[in-house]
Design a protein around this nucleic acid. Structure first.
Lengths: 228, 228
DNA sequence: CGCGGCTTTGATGTTCATCAAGTAAAGTGG
DNA sequence: CCACTTTACTTGATGAACATCAAAGCCGCG
């Protein structure tokens, strides 16, 4: 193990690097750049020139495009070890969406040239990247279809369960995004997100303490999500 | 040029095969299977084991998933030279969506094993596949966001313009799908798709003759699509 | 030729966005 | 650190957009 190189401890090694040999890992390790972001910081700006390949080491981010009317359109969230720039690095030479931290985050990035030489010299790596991209895309499409078929209650229940089950794995958590962001993501007006959450509170399905949410009746919420 | 091998005339060569040398092309050429499908025929059944890589040589197909309630959810259409199985070949070993011909179609497919050996032996091919997948996924996500922000009129206008501009490149065309399919794709009730189309007819924006559609006032339809 | 699915129109009611108005919270500059 | 501004949150009232229900004609297919 080389001094100063923390890649050996990095969980990513097992995921992304499974097809890369030690020499390559060391090369990446020496050239990689870690960067910290505060909540709200912009990590990627849509239309920026792509110069590096970025993955999320810690934190939580939202990915969104800007509609013609200038409004954000969140299409997914990414958690640690998701490849934040995966969906755009292989398209053109500019990012086609923005990424903003919604929790304190740390990214790790390697130069695009390095990624390309990796891809060109290591087919297994290219294939595993192909698989990863495929799974990520499918998840986004699948999720958007799921949400599309639900009514407002179902959608709000869905996002609450998303944060509880997938992101925080806890029935008590702090919402990392505003009601407006939720509304935007699930395709509902802000007021109706709030109203629906208030209803859930009155029916003692959830507890609301500002940004802090407690899921009281998990099964009921799940049922609303599935039937809605 | 080998007798019986039609790949030399295939436009795909320039797209998909740009990074494959002649020896490989001949190998593919000899093992490829062309298949014809009538309108309505199932090309891929969701959950089927993936055994081959399929692209569309001629025709038009719809790609959809099945919701929990058993309803189709169309998420995109594919035209010639789109890679119909692209979104699922690299995920698991089963297709995660269905593909049905909505016009007489011809597919060309190569064995999955052949695709894999191509990917493993030719990095440039792998990288260009990566790019293709990336663009396809982005297009689907982008389109779903676009539709999501529109009202019923805008959505119906959108799908009409989609067929006119992108698929048929003609102001007069025959709708390849039912009103129900349109409704399903743009996320609106069937009745409201019909009603909206009738309105467009009354306002002399379009002409309706059963499945045959004529776009009379293109600019107005475009405006409805953009503003809606 | 008759059945089932597709299409069409009308009537009805519900869901949901929008408007309005007020409170709370969070950021900003002196 | 406080006044100030802005942004987020909340609730109620209203109406419009849209889904749903119903009924009838149409088309294609076995």
């Amino acid at each position: 193990m080389k001094a100063g190189c923390t890649c050996d401890n990095c969980e990513l090694k097992g995921l992304f690097y499974e097809n890369i040999n030690d020499v390559m890992i060391e090369s990446i390790c020496n050239s990689k750049i870690e960067q910290e972001f505060k909540k709200g910081d912009v990590i990627i700006n849509s239309n920026d020139t792509i110069t590096e390949f970025i993955y999320l080491k810690e934190g939580l981010v939202k990915l969104f495009k800007i509609a013609e009317n200038g409004e954000e359109q969140i299409f997914t969230f990414a958690k640690p070890f998701d490849f934040v720039s995966l969906l755009s690095v292989f398209t053109y030479n500019r990012h086609n969406y923005s990424v903003v931290a919604i929790e304190p985050s740390i990214t790790c990035s390697i130069q695009l040239s390095e990624l390309n030489s990796l891809l060109e010299s290591n087919n297994k790596f290219a294939i595993s990247t192909l698989k990863k991209l495929s799974v990520v895309s499918d998840k986004i499409i699948q999720e958007s279809l799921k949400i599309k078929q639900k009514n407002v209650k179902g959608r709000v229940a869905y996002i609450l369960l998303f944060f509880s089950d997938i992101i925080y794995q806890s029935k008590y958590f702090s919402l990392p995004i505003s009601r407006k962001d939720i509304a935007n993501f699930v395709g509902v007006s802000t007021e109706n997100v709030i109203r629906t959450m208030s209803e859930f509170r009155k029916e003692e399905i959830i507890g609301i303490f500002g940004k802090h949410i407690e899921i009281i009746d998990y099964n009921k919420l799940k049922k609303i999500c599935e039937l809605g």
